[in-house]
Design a protein around this nucleic acid. Structure first.
Lengths: 342, 342
DNA sequence: CACGCCGATGGAAGCGGTTTCACGAACTCA
DNA sequence: TGAGTTCGTGAAACCGCTTCCATCGGCGTG
């Protein structure tokens, strides 16, 4: 009597148990159609009985493929503009990858050391493709990945070169649409609380705001810059109110800032939306939680995730294509803060 | 003249370029001290010149080790009580793993299919250890991992068996401490907004509340259950205020609910903290953002992450140990909502 | 009936490392 | 000076799987 092996069953053992060669067994798991029905069944049965799980290291070593794509996200809590949207984006990415049988692997480097290790990891063949959401401009990661020939797609237009593939949302259109909505509601003295100067996303929203105001022949100089956080929005609103203008609407470049602005308005006795309408950006959970609930520009962020996944997969199959770009349009989520309670 | 190979340099090429054997080169990268200084330098130089990156699949196949640990987090946006703490926890885990040269790999299964694939992935040897933060009780994942001999540590005491290692925060002590603080501030009619019945974490907080109240000979029946979200906290507060009791303090089991409660209080003309003190739980960003800023029970969540990492690493080294448990104590973050503005 | 094809299969050569083991050189110690 | 160590090294055996290639019946054709 032989002691039962305590190690994981290997493909070889499965093959032997099924009475076929390792090659055939491998074909069964690889989904290769050139296997007789009988052989397939035998292998599947044997695998089930032995509790076989393919060894991914061996598989990816031999196959040159890992069936997983890496997603690099900003350091959690970095208060990047992406923060509130991240869960939705990941959901989109996950859905799409899942559908192709791929595993999503998240990374969130927190230190330069981490980053370096991450580079090794990604360049070391652990993943078949990479989705980059970090916006640190100084990163050499993209270059390394490119050198290694690993398909890479950015979420959000990266700062520097255009020589990369990316998917982005149309921030300019978002800013314009939000502003137009306020104008349609009869508002005339509209202020804008923008994000940090130099940030692509919020700069574009600001330009959208200006464009809409110009078109309507309204003044577009009531602009304050803040840091996207709630408190800074509150402060910005206070500054705006200190001016002599009778502001009747505010468009903020983030929901958090809009929430802060709304608070400042209410503290100073302004009614929302009766006296001042407020609209935010991102349609994050915050937007629904304010009192009154807040209109916001909803980014098609799940779709962005899906498109990123699709794009990187297509790059992975048809290698050698040039960089691809894709811009997605936003839509408005209207709530009581701009349309009144009717 | 020979065309330059366009493929990744392998260890073999590095070894050849350095004039040593593959074995020696491998020792250099493995940190094996039994290598002469000269050989080491030659290999490092060659590696740098060729841009060598070790192939992780090969390495983990041969070495039986992947130098990465998987972290399974709840579906994003599932509004699990962990939600606001997740970034901090991951930071703690990441720090600790980083220090040991390990890579943290995040997973967030979103569908049963994902979950199954994840099982394969984890059981397939892609990771050396697993940290589980998902609280789906029905999961077979833990059992599978155990069967595969993969060290696993839970974040938060899992519902069922005790036969697993976990790290948890002391919710009972947290509830007690928060309540005692209110009592010390002279409050006597204290209400509690708890989480969903049956949720370990919030049940423990409720018991902590009761214990503190009993000890002080105060009534502890002013309890409402809510769902941890802001709105439900607001509703719960309204119900509490509808009672005839002159409530002078509220302890809510989450910051979000506390924020909702605070809003309800202020809408109804109660001043915080003059009329009613409010304390939350988690010390999440929300706590600092309310007006006035809110006291909260700060969970040592980064530390929890670090301890989880440490624990799983120790399990990975000294195999065969029984399950280990660790409970971490909370502390108070005091702000204006309970201590007055002096 | 001989020939060429085709579909299913197994043998075997890798994939790129790690690690055991044996070996020679340089050193120690008597 | 010879035996016993120590130390650095290389040859080679894997790790578990994929895939190329050769093989082999059985089939449709002329």
């Amino acid at each position: 009597m032989e002691a039962v092996s305590r190690t994981q069953p290997t493909l070889d053992q499965v093959a032997r148990a099924a009475g076929v060669s390792r090659a055939t067994a491998s074909r069964v798991f690889g989904g290769n159609p050139a296997v007789s029905e009988a052989a397939r069944r035998a292998v599947e049965l044997a695998a089930a009985e032995l509790g076989y799980v393919p060894n991914s290291a061996a598989r990816s070593l031999a196959g040159g493929r890992s069936d997983s794509v890496g997603v690099v996200v900003p350091e959690p809590g970095s208060r990047l503009f992406l923060d509130p949207l991240l869960p939705r984006l990941l959901r989109g990415v996950g859905e799409e990858l899942s559908a192709s049988g791929l595993q999503m692997v998240l990374f969130s480097p927190q230190s330069p050391t981490d980053l370096q290790r991450l580079e090794q990891y990604l360049a070391g063949g652990h993943v078949d493709a990479v989705l980059l959401l970090t916006l640190h401009e100084s990163d050499v990661l993209p270059a390394r990945l490119k050198a290694r020939g690993i398909p890479t797609v950015f979420g959000g237009r990266p700062r520097g070169s255009i020589e990369v593939s990316f998917v982005d949302v149309d921030n300019h259109a978002g800013g314009r649409t939000a502003t137009e909505h306020l104008i349609e509601q009869g508002r005339r003295v509209i202020a804008h609380i923008s994000g940090p100067r130099g940030l692509h996303a919020t700069d574009d929203r600001l330009h959208g705001f200006r464009e809409a105001m110009w078109k309507a022949a309204l003044r577009s100089d009531l602009v304050e810059h803040a840091d996207l956080g709630r408190d800074s929005g509150e402060v910005a609103m206070e500054r705006l109110l200190a001016s002599t203008h009778r502001i009747d609407a505010v468009f903020a470049a983030s929901d958090e800032m809009a929430a802060g602005a709304m608070w400042a308005l209410q503290v100073l006795g302004r009614r929302v939306p009766d006296d001042v309408a407020v609209i935010g950006f991102d349609d994050s959970p915050v937007a629904a939680a304010t009192q009154p609930p807040m209109s916001s520009v909803r980014q098609p962020i799940e779709e962005m995730g899906r498109e990123m996944a699709r794009l990187v997969l297509s790059l992975a199959s048809k290698r050698g294509e040039g960089p691809q770009h894709m811009i997605l349009g936003p839509e408005l989520a209207l709530r009581a803060s701009t349309v009144g309670t009717g």
